[in-house]
Computed example of a mutant assay.
Amino acid sequence: MVTDSSWLGPPINVQPLFPKQQTAFIELLGSLEPDEWIRPTACPGWNVKDVAAHVLGDHIGRLSMHRDRFHVLRPSDGEAFPAFLDRINDDWVTAASRLSPAVLTDLLSFIGDQVVLFWQNVDMDAIDGSVSWAGPEPHPAWLDASRDFTEYWTHHQQICEATDRTGLTDPEYFGPVIDTFMRALPHTLREVQAPERTTLQVSVTGPGEGTWACIRGPKRWVLQRDSSPRPDAYLELETDTAWRLCTRGIHPHQAAERVRIDGDHRLATAALNIVSIIWTPPDSDPFGESRRP
């Protein structure tokens, strides 16, 4: 399958980071005291052990579906895909509540090592599957790998914050995390009408800092990993605000109080609706808490 994915911006290479992240995650779990496993996290209704169990479920799903091509679970008739994921994730975590922290850590060590190996052997230029928060069309494997990396990083960070640890916040990790999250910008702006060549520049400051220009093309918004000399709209936010916004740790109205906007306020504000996870807002509150990142 040949598909032009240049509108997503240049590829991100996270392959070298998977082994480091896996090692850091197992070391984190091994350092937890018994009472820390039951601390609540930013994932509503899930404690530290639940989040770790969710990561194990993701690992098993990745290997089963993408390495072994074994597909069993599918949405029920009329069930939206995010609702389907919420349901099977909750079912998995409930079942995994029988696992002791030691058993869970051993399983994560064994299965996580296989996920690392899987990603080392994937053709990153292959078009295979879709990263839904970047759009409905097929996407290159490098974006799927980066999506996986950011999900594991996010859950690692949630456990660290729940247990008063720092986490993987140096630029080596934060850079690819923020860069991946910004790949949702063209899809975020898909309904924003603007003349061709209209440009939004987004600058993230702090660890993992970078600049992205999202430009209106003849058919869609196109992302560039660069600054624009004269953007129509400029949005600046700190790294901490960026990752929390993209994973709905904070919501657009909260992020708006922490950012700098110049130029076309409508366009810059629309970009604050960015979501770089599969997320379903509650029907009653568009700014309510997400289910599970």
Rank of each mutant, 00 (worst) to 15 (best):
H66N: 09
L104K: 09
G112S: 10
S64T: 12
R62G: 03
A95Y: 08
S130R: 09
A83F: 02
L104N: 06
T94E: 14
T105M: 07
I88G: 10
L85Q: 12
L117N: 09
L99S: 04
D123T: 01
I127C: 11
R98F: 07
R69K: 15
H71V: 14
H66P: 03
D106C: 11
W119Y: 15
F81L: 13
W92L: 08
D91I: 12
L107C: 08
D86H: 12
Q120L: 09
D90M: 06
P101L: 00
L85C: 15
D90V: 08
A102R: 09
L85N: 14
R62K: 07
Q114M: 10
S109N: 13
W119E: 02
V115F: 03
I127G: 07
L104Y: 06
A95H: 11
L63P: 02
T94F: 11
S100K: 08
S130C: 11
T94P: 03
P82H: 00
F118Y: 14
S64D: 13
H71Q: 10
P136C: 01
D77C: 00
H71T: 07
A80G: 14
G78L: 02
G135N: 07
H66A: 03
D106T: 10
A134C: 15
I127F: 04
H59D: 15
S109F: 07
F84W: 04
M65L: 07
D77E: 11
E137K: 13
T94L: 12
G135L: 06
G78P: 14
R87I: 10
A80M: 08
G61M: 01
P101R: 06
F84E: 05
I127L: 14
E137N: 11
E137P: 09
T94N: 12
R62N: 07
A80H: 13
T105D: 01
L104W: 06
T105K: 06
D77P: 03
T94W: 11
D90L: 13
I127N: 08
V131S: 05
S109P: 04
L108D: 04
G129Q: 08
L107G: 12
M65H: 08
R87M: 09
F110N: 12
S100A: 07
P101C: 09
L117I: 04
R62H: 08
D106Y: 02
P75F: 00
I88E: 06
D123V: 03
I111E: 03
L73W: 05
A126K: 05
R74S: 15
